[in-house]
């Protein structure tokens, strides 16, 4: 019988050292409840630093300080890792944190296909180590009208795209996420899996577009899209595809999963736009930080207009939503 043993760090932790989720929750619950009563739970950073390191299999990640960071109050890590939309692991927002432990993030490879000089398959650890990982604090606006402020760790996707050497004919890049029924038994049947998203090449090359491997100075929790995802702070959250296994370069606008599910509501561009609410208003958002969520006005391009508005000059963004 062959027992495969891997040398990648993620699988070498004895299961006895991993804090079970329930224990993690009860520990943080008791502590936070106590602190709340004592009236000292004021800063989100304080709450984040008190959390155990090993929760959800996250590992410390070496990072350098990056640009574009906001100084707004950050969302505590416990909220960012327990309130997620990752439908492959269940639809209710508490489900991904409970179910995503089935996601195997090693071994993991990323395919580069389509209009590139040389199609290739890349090991995830090579991808992570390709460039220094920067810490960037971005606003994250969900189309469900809540928002978070998250310190992501990654480097600009443009660096990786340059490495891929797309042909001049490539006008778009599509992101394909992992879909494995065995690891994702909770995925509802009603969507066209695997999750697929895409960007116009100039959007993908924009320095804000972050190829992300971690958050809060640690590797991504599975429910946050480990081991690699995209983060697009000026677009509705669903554009930021998680657990990516393939980058496909093409000359045609890629079809996207939510656009296929409901084209009137979810367009290809999906830029944050407070003036375009379909089922409900998008003019405000509930900011989820360390306090009781409060309503704040939503900004065009989620406040990144100075950086990205020029990408869309001359376009009617009510039509090209």
């Amino acid at each position: 019988m062959l027992i495969r043993k891997t040398h990648l760090s993620g699988e070498n932790i004895p299961s006895s050292q991993i804090t079970p989720l329930e224990a993690f929750h009860s520990a943080t619950t008791d502590r936070r409840a106590f602190l709340a009563r004592a009236g000292v739970l004021a800063a989100g950073s304080a709450a984040a630093s008190m959390l155990p390191r090993r929760a959800f299999g996250m590992e410390p990640l070496k990072t350098v300080s990056g640009q574009f960071s906001t100084t707004e109050a950050q969302t505590p890590i416990v909220r960012a890792t327990t309130y997620n939309n990752f439908y492959e692991f269940g639809v209710p927002k508490d489900q991904p944190a409970k179910n995503a432990h089935t996601l195997k993030t090693r071994p993991w490879t990323v395919q580069v296909t389509g209009m590139v000089k040389k199609p290739q398959t890349i090991n995830i650890d090579d991808l992570i180590n390709y460039r220094p990982v920067e810490s960037r604090v971005y606003r994250h606006r969900c189309v469900e009208a809540w928002s978070m402020v998250i310190p992501w760790d990654g480097y600009s996707l443009s660096e990786f795209i340059n490495f891929c050497e797309p042909l001049p004919s490539a006008k778009y890049v599509a992101f394909i996420s992992l879909y494995d029924r065995k690891q994702m038994p909770e995925a509802p049947d009603d969507y066209n899996w695997p999750y697929h998203e895409g960007l116009r090449m100039d959007e993908a090359m924009h320095p804000l577009t972050l190829l992300t491997f971690g958050a809060y100075g640690q590797t991504l929790a599975n429910q946050n899209g480990a081991p690699a995802r995209i983060v697009l702070p000026w677009k509705w959250g669903y554009k930021s595809a998680k657990s990516i296994v393939k980058f496909h370069f093409t000359d045609k606008q890629p079809s996207t999963l939510w656009n296929e599910a409901n084209s009137n509501e979810y367009g290809f561009y999906s830029n944050v736009n407070p003036k375009r609410g379909v089922r409900y208003s998008q003019e405000r958002e509930r900011r989820i930080d360390s306090g009781f969520p409060h309503e704040i006005p939503t900004q065009m391009f989620n406040g990144y207009g100075d950086q990205v508005a020029s990408l869309y000059s001359g376009m009617d963004l009510m039509k090209n939503y």
Partner: peptide, 8 residues
């Protein structure tokens, strides 16, 4: 204060 733990 159980709400403080909840994200939303």
């Amino acid at each position: 204060g159980a709400f403080d733990l909840e994200a939303d």
